[in-house]
């Protein structure tokens, strides 16, 4: 087995120092919604290394165009932007066919959601959600309106920085991730209690999209670049096989 490299196998263990803890009291809602027992660590089995496979024909042609996918005859108000990047794994490899789903407020900071009652108006031509599959290199792209910041009930005057929510489904169940993308140079990022749940400054920087002047459309749209990193699929030369009778197994 000396040169045999097993793929389709296990994923790197999650580095929890990169992630917010469940209990983060400055984000008040987390207080009663956080488990207090230690998580039970599991080595990967088939239940963890597999995940749903999505197909292109499940998505519509405009699903990744938030400027047009809820148009009721007009265009949404706000800054037209293109957002693109790669979904990578921790080894820097593109993750193909990952399902990327995004949602956001409109330019005024209002969500099209029955539970959002913020004073800013709903935009009749903006739904605020989109979805796409990454290509064979792990690249994704969509077009939208830059979302506005908005106030929320935490302290009496907390404001969310402009952000776009991301849900990513990769090739393994362990890669499932929800996160948020922020915009370069927004002063609200540093003050946001939800951003501040992340313990590492480097991990926060990794959630900030950068202005990408070469990917925009002249006289039409600016562009932002945002790469997302999922857990890495390990290359294992020895033991630790998820299925079949292992040559050397320690549990």
């Amino acid at each position: 087995m000396a040169n045999e490299r097993h793929t389709g196998g296990e994923f790197n263990a999650r580095d929890r120092t990169q992630h917010p803890p469940a209990f983060a009291p400055t984000y008040k809602t987390s207080v009663l919604r956080s488990p207090r027992n230690a998580l039970i660590s599991l080595q990967n089995s088939l239940s963890e290394i597999t995940a749903p496979v999505f197909k292109a024909d499940e998505l519509g042609e405009l699903d990744h165009d938030l400027i047009l996918n809820y148009s009721k005859g007009g265009l949404p108000i706000g800054e037209r932007i293109i957002v693109h990047g790669h979904v990578l794994d921790e080894f820097g490899r593109g993750v193909p066919n990952a399902l990327v789903e995004v949602w956001q407020a409109n330019a005024g900071g209002r969500y099209r959601h029955r539970n959002d009652h913020y004073i800013a108006p709903v935009d009749p031509n903006f739904g605020g959600c989109g979805r796409m599959l990454t290509d064979r290199d792990g690249h994704y792209v969509y077009r939208t309106i830059k979302p506005g910041p908005y106030p929320w009930r935490n302290s009496v005057n907390d404001w969310r920085p402009a952000h776009i929510h991301y849900s990513v489904s990769g090739t393994g169940w362990v890669q499932r991730l929800i996160t948020q993308m922020y915009f370069e140079a927004d002063p609200l990022i540093a003050q946001c209690p939800i951003v501040r749940t992340i313990p590492s400054e480097a991990a926060i920087r990794q959630l900030i999209a950068v202005l990408d002047r070469n990917a925009g459309v002249p006289l039409d749209s600016l562009a932002y670049r945002f790469d997302i990193v999922l857990r890495g699929a390990r290359a294992t030369w020895f033991e630790n096989r998820v299925q079949g009778q292992p040559a050397m197994q320690r549990e």
Binding site: P20, G128, L177, T179, Q206
Partner: peptide, 21 residues
Amino acid sequence: IYLKESASQTAGPYVHIGLAP
């Protein structure tokens, strides 16, 4: 040298817009 997994953030109260409109 490995890349670091992107940090998780809460799905928030309006997760339905994106995942179950």
